[in-house]
């Protein structure tokens, strides 16, 4: 694990990787990264602590510990993944473990925006398709090729039409998912807005 982590930068339209399945609904961000690991001033060391409690409980049998899942980068999940706390430490921990994209039935709002903000696309598929992928993964490895432009995920013998929010898709395709500089381009409008807001005026005591 001595390879230095490189966060994704720039635009991308294709993504290949081995899938790892994590079965369960409502998997919250406390489970993804327990609160004790939030005592840090950077995200660097979070990768190894992802799902720490669940992994301890399963004593080596958690999907993130299984030898067969080594090197996986596309996470397959079920419904309402990432609910709970707004901690960006959760997608940061997944990303630093090696996850580059997530495909699930549905995602919690804040978790979803955190993933997009750090460059981890989240796609949705119907329950049955996720089940199909998870059953496939029970038997053998699955390598998917994700085409962001066409919104498809393909393997030799499987093909799925992925859903992703149009705004997120455009961001990745254009490389503008790192929002700060885009926001700052509108500084004149921002300053005008500040001057226009009624409460700014009556809060000068």
């Amino acid at each position: 694990m001595s390879i230095k982590f490189k966060p994704p930068i720039g635009k991308f339209s294709r993504l290949n990787g081995k899938c790892i399945s994590l079965v369960g609904d409502d998997i919250d961000t406390d489970r993804i990264i327990p609160a004790r690991f939030l005592k840090c001033i950077d995200f660097d060391s979070l990768g190894k602590s992802v799902f720490d409690d669940d992994r301890r409980t399963l004593k080596g049998n958690h999907p993130f510990d299984l030898e067969i899942n080594k090197g996986a980068s596309i996470l397959i999940v079920n419904s309402n993944f990432g609910c709970g706390s707004s901690r960006e430490h959760a997608p940061q921990a997944l990303m630093r473990w090696g996850i580059k994209a997530i495909i699930g039935e549905s995602f919690a709002d804040i978790f979803y925006s955190n993933c997009i903000a750090i460059g981890v696309p989240c796609f949705t598929l119907p329950k049955e398709s996720i089940k199909k992928i998870q059953q496939y993964l029970d038997i053998k490895n699955l390598f998917l090729e994700i085409d962001l432009l066409k919104s498809t995920a393909k393997a030799e013998d499987l093909k799925f039409n992925l859903e992703i929010k149009e705004t997120s898709k455009k961001m990745f395709l254009s490389g503008e998912w790192d929002a700060t500089s885009k926001l700052l381009e509108n500084m004149d409008l921002i300053e005008n807005k500040l001057n226009d807001l009624p409460y700014i005026k009556f809060n000068i005591n």
Partner: peptide, 21 residues
């Protein structure tokens, strides 16, 4: 009022705005 992640905290500090649907 809504919760945001650290990248958006950065955006608010830098620009007092965020991108949101």
């Amino acid at each position: 009022a809504f919760g945001i992640g650290t990248s958006q905290v950065r955006d608010v500090l830098a620009s007092q705005t965020i991108a949101m649907n």
